[in-house]
Write a protein that binds this DNA or RNA. Structure first.
Length: 272
DNA sequence: CGCATTTCCTGGTAGC
DNA sequence: TGCTACCAGGAAATGC
């Protein structure tokens, strides 16, 4: 989405903003948006970060069902339109933020100041950046007793891994989702680090994963759903070994894993 | 501080 | 057909 938004929005000025949702912390500060220049479109994890003139920043998060579009939602979806932003200059001249389930955010903050966004403030390294290394991931995991999947979902060891990509990366790495993070061996951490990079890079190349709601800015679908190996495939044969995939709940989230490729954790002595 | 639990929210669907 | 119950989950709030 960042790649679509950057060439469209960079350098444009905001003419006006309409908030169609009840005001609240998820839409804080939008009254400060009109008249600002959008200086660029960045991203950290699942947060879109748009620096604005005047030392401000527009922060957008899609939650589960949020959509940022360069075209108006159709009649049926229009009840979920939350924010409309009119831009100066050429077409498309309006940004639409829709969010049926209201888990998304679209707010203006002082640039780099995230007191109301603690996850963003404590976000781990970018998964496709140089800062995300096996050694760094190992050091983070060593500090946590959580099941490794729950720890990944916290956004602290690495940014941007949600439920779908956590299941995919753990399956690729052959790591059981319930393994306490601190129990992971060096080889497992390295495999997980590589798997997270591979899965996210492939998903970005496919423009994301559309299961039902997700749409690109221009209204297209993300095609990574066709490459999913684990997520949503409980009861089916593991693509690697043929064992029936199992469903469970880890960190309050539906989870699919292969009991053969991702064997249940057994505590072993480090360095043994 | 770290972690577990609860909350927010609505469309889709299973079951009757 | 129409009803109820339940499920999906990202991040914040709450509780310990």
């Amino acid at each position: 989405m960042r790649r679509e938004l950057a060439p469209w929005l960079t350098g444009r000025e905001v003419r006006s903003v309409d908030l169609l949702a009840p005001a609240g912390p998820k839409y804080a500060g939008l009254e400060r948006l009109a008249g600002r220049l959008i200086e660029g479109v960045g991203r950290r994890g699942k947060f879109l970060l748009m620096p604005l003139s005047g030392g401000l920043e527009l922060v957008a998060h899609l939650g589960m069902t949020g959509v940022i579009a360069d075209h108006a939602p159709d009649a049926r979806a229009s009840t979920h339109l939350r924010v409309r932003v009119e831009l100066s200059g050429g077409d498309p001249g309006t940004l639409f933020f829709s969010d049926p389930r209201r888990f998304g955010r679209f707010l203006v903050v002082d640039a780099g100041h995230y007191p109301t966004l603690p996850t963003l403030a404590a976000l781990g390294p970018e998964p496709l950046g140089d800062d995300f290394t096996p050694a760094g991931l190992a050091a983070a995991c060593a500090r946590s007793t959580m099941p490794v999947k729950a720890y990944l979902l916290s956004q602290r060891p690495v940014a941007g891994v949600g439920n779908i990509y956590a299941d995919e990366a753990l399956w690729r790495a052959g790591v059981h989702p319930r393994t306490p993070a601190a129990w992971l061996g060096e080889d497992q951490v390295a495999a997980l680090c590589a798997a997270i990079r591979e899965v996210l890079a492939a998903a970005v190349a496919a423009q994301g994963t559309t299961l039902s709601d997700y749409r690109t800015v221009r209204g297209g679908t993300g095609e990574y759903a066709r490459q999913l190996q684990a997520y949503g495939r409980a009861g089916e044969a593991c693509p690697r070994c043929g064992t029936e995939m199992e469903r469970s709940i880890v960190g309050q989230r539906g989870t699919t894993h292969c009991p053969t490729c991702q064997p249940a954790p057994r505590k072993t002595r480090r360095g043994a």
